[in-house]
Amino acid sequence: MPADRTRVALIFGGQSTEHQISCLTAAGVAKAIDTDRFEVYGVGISPSGIWHRMSLDEITRLRAEGRTLPSLDDHLPAASLVRESDGVRLMNCDGSDDPAEVDVALVLLHGAYGEDGTVQGMLEMLGLPYVGSGVAASAIGMDKHLMKVSLANAGLPIGPYELVRTSQWDQDRQGCCDRIAASLTLPVYVKPARGGSSVGITRVTDPADLAPAIESARGFDPKVIVEEGFVDSREVECAVLGPRPGEAEIRTSHPGEIVVHSESAFYDFDAKYLPEGQVDLKIPAELPAAVEQQVRELSARCFEALEVEGLARVDTFVTASGDVFINELNTMPGFTELSMFPSLWQVSGLSYTDLITDLIEQALARPNNVIR
């Protein structure tokens, strides 16, 4: 192996409901990363929040077994990233292994405590470059309400929605339901405002089911967003990359389409991650040239409006008349080899391995986000 390889801390797992998805993502990246250019040190965070140092081989062995997804436990020694005068090191807390110097972090955490700006803030304090968005963009991207407010302020098309705050729900549940019924047309989608991988989401077609759906979403986040469904529309997603080092152009992929066959009638957790044939991913999507161009332009505008860095997946609805509405932007999309984001770049001419390299190069070239 070359002696001057860039040293990468691959951080994955985490405490969110998307822990298992992050493990799948890490396994895919570990298998594909260019080991001639990068020396990888795994940092697996267990559901209890303990950080563990893991080898590349240990990460690649993480896989789904039927309907059981991989998860980490705490049998490995605890580890931490430590800032020293000459750089950042990954150390076992009990001193049982040689400290490993790291140059950049590849953060593959989904959901809370990873995709929401928290770990990004820690890495900023360490002075360690990292792949993906900074603190503010990560936090806004994680909060579906704040994201919609930001996109609307930027003049981007979004669908109708209502917000249910904890105080509102506690004081007047029926009033919340009445407000939603008056402003939104069924079906609606009830979602935790700060969640991912479609966990805690319910499609509501009967007004009697609205309150239970809100209660279900509140089990994942006390702040709930209710979105009006787009009937007879297509779910179209676009992958976005930040500019290459030294360039200014935000890059967009050919869009892909999600066709759902599951009983839930939307792209829920099972449809995304369990091998039951509940969805078809049409990559690239069959769209008129003008509609594809609109999806790509709006996706780039979303990326710019939220000041996203590195990567994002923008999810849109395309109506029967060809109008495009933004559903949401994901700052750390699913990143297994078969996930939509890498697959879109594959058909757009960028392999999985080269995509990983591109993201690390962006991170290393980007100035530290801290304002001094």
Rank of each mutant, 00 (worst) to 15 (best):
A64D: 06
N92V: 04
G134A: 06
G246H: 00
G117S: 00
A285N: 11
F335I: 06
E115P: 01
V199M: 10
V82A: 06
N369S: 13
Q15L: 06
E361T: 09
T166C: 02
F325W: 14
D209A: 13
P342Y: 10
R203F: 03
A152Y: 00
E65K: 05
P192L: 04
H254R: 13
G229R: 10
D315G: 04
A248C: 06
G219Q: 11
L311S: 02
C23N: 08
D315I: 00
D315N: 07
R89I: 12
D270A: 14
V8D: 01
A312F: 09
A300Q: 12
S150W: 04
F335W: 05
V135M: 02
E276G: 05
G49W: 08
G196Q: 08
Q168N: 08
G322E: 10
F220V: 00
S253Q: 11
V149P: 01
E18K: 00
R173Q: 14
T17F: 08
D206H: 12
I214C: 10
R296A: 13
H52G: 12
P245V: 04
E39W: 06
Y113L: 11
I140K: 07
E215S: 12
A137D: 00
P275M: 11
S216R: 09
Q174I: 02
C176P: 03
I258H: 02
R89P: 01
M54K: 03
